[in-house]
Every structure is written in C-alpha cells, then in structure tokens.
Computed example of a mutant assay.
Amino acid sequence: MIIEQRIKEIFGERAFERPIFYTNPGGLRFELSEGGDWLEQFELAYKKALEICSTIFDDEIVVCIRIFGKESLMSVLSVLKELRHIGLYPSMKKEHWKEKNEDDPEWATDGDEYWHTVAFALPYNALNKLLWCSLACDQGIKPCPPAEYYLFDLKKSIEVWPYDDRGMDVVGPNHSLLTELYNKFSNYLLDYDREAMDASFQKMP
C-alpha cells in the first residue's frame, strides 16, 4: 500500500477529513465560482482551478477517488465503470482501501456504509478531466461520476481538494509552495477565511 502509506506519512491521519482546510491547518482555501448562472459559475470555477493547479502540478498526479457505498467494492461498481469510460480509472497499478463511515452524518443513512478509496497515478494531462469531474457534480453537468476527488503531488507534499464549483482547498507541509500560491493567487482566496491564511502566510512588516 505505497500510496496510502505515503499519504499518512506526509499528511497524517486527517488527509481526507472534510473540510480539509479546517482539519489540516496552515493551508489555503480558494473561492472559485462567483455570480451568474450555472454555466458562468462552472466556467469560472474551472478556469480558476486549472490556473491554480497548473502552478502546482507539472508531472504525475496521484489521485485518490473516494466513493460512498456498502462494504463490498462491488457496491460502487457503476461509479468505477463510469470512471473507466471517461479515462479516469487505469486498468493496472491501483490501490484500494476502505473505512467504515462513522463520523460523517452528511452521508449516513444506515449502519452498512463505507468510504472506498481507489488510488493511482495519472499523467499531468488528466488534470482537465479531474477538475471537470470535481467541479461539475453540484451543477448536474455530465459526465460526473459521484465521488470525491483528492489530488496529490507526493514529491512536493501538497494535497488539493476541489470540493465543488464553489471552492478548492490546498494543504500540506510544503510551506514555501503554499506561500507562493498565497501571493500569486491572493485575489482568489476566500475572504471568509482570509484572516487565518494571512496569519500563516503574510509577511510581517
């Protein structure tokens, strides 16, 4: 379980505990969509996310796709098939792990519920599809396999969670890269959490 172990080594036990901006202090939270209709919101969110992520990723992207289902991986087979159909589920070199849904009342419906995580590496040119799927679900735009998409650069120790068209969290122990993003994309930062981000990254006078 190389990917799972590396994520735990770098990010600890809370890498997937949402919202990761609050559970992994010292990160960034970007506001993506603004006003307008659903298409204008999606287009702006996609443009901003791609601009930010193109600064972060330049090679391999480690992807963790988390799917909500029953204990068996077969319970999420339809999502896996959709991912494969759009080119986001390689045939080889994948990891799978699961954990029982204990603390997520937003998703809970009964006792037999699990988060399945499928992890693998994709080339940089998959970024467009990954962001599309991450941002499209709430807008009802297709294709959009129902899942959570977490993107990692394990060499740079950075995690990106585009949670929907509204925003995207970027966290990790790479303070220098986070500072670069804070300065470069300051106008994209979510004002609600700007005070916390300023405390972490703003230069003292």
Rank of each mutant, 00 (worst) to 15 (best):
R66S: 12
R29V: 01
S33T: 11
A108R: 13
M204C: 06
P146T: 04
S75L: 14
T55N: 11
G87K: 06
N101V: 15
F68N: 08
F11G: 04
D191W: 02
N125F: 11
I67D: 09
V63L: 13
E148L: 04
A121N: 08
I67T: 13
G172T: 06
A199N: 08
L28N: 11
P143S: 02
E60R: 15
A126I: 00
P19N: 09
D165H: 13
A126E: 09
P25R: 09
P90T: 06
R29Y: 15
V118Q: 03
N174K: 05
L181P: 06
Y22A: 11
D193S: 05
Y150N: 04
R29F: 15
P90A: 01
I56V: 15
L135M: 02
V118R: 04
V160I: 15
N125C: 00
H85V: 03
Y192F: 11
D110R: 02
E4S: 05
M204T: 14
G27E: 12
I52L: 03
F30Q: 03
K129L: 13
C144H: 12
F152H: 10
R84W: 07
H85D: 07
G35K: 12
G26I: 15
M92N: 05
P145G: 03
N174P: 13
W161K: 08
K81S: 13
I20M: 02
L127K: 07
L77N: 14
E99R: 06
N24P: 04
F11Q: 03
G69I: 14
G27Q: 10
I52H: 07
S176N: 06
D165E: 08
I158H: 08
L50G: 03
F21D: 02
M1Q: 01
L151T: 07
I7N: 00
D58V: 01
E31D: 05
G12P: 05
L28Q: 06
E113P: 09
P146I: 04
V79H: 08
F57L: 04
I2C: 00
Y46D: 00
A45Q: 07
P146Y: 05
L77C: 02
K129Y: 07
D59Y: 10
W107Q: 01
I141M: 05
E159C: 15
L88C: 09
P173Y: 04
D138I: 00
R18W: 07
P173A: 01
M204I: 14
F21Y: 14
N101C: 11
G35P: 12
K98T: 08
P19W: 09
E106N: 05
Y150L: 15
P146D: 13
L80P: 09
P143V: 05
L44S: 01
E34L: 02
N101M: 14
A49V: 10
R84S: 14
S75G: 13
L127S: 06
S186N: 06
P205A: 03
D112R: 03
E106G: 05
L177R: 06
L122R: 04
Y124R: 15
S186G: 01
E43H: 07
L151I: 11
F16M: 05
Y22V: 07
F120W: 12
H96K: 10
F201W: 10
T117V: 10
D169G: 03
M204A: 12
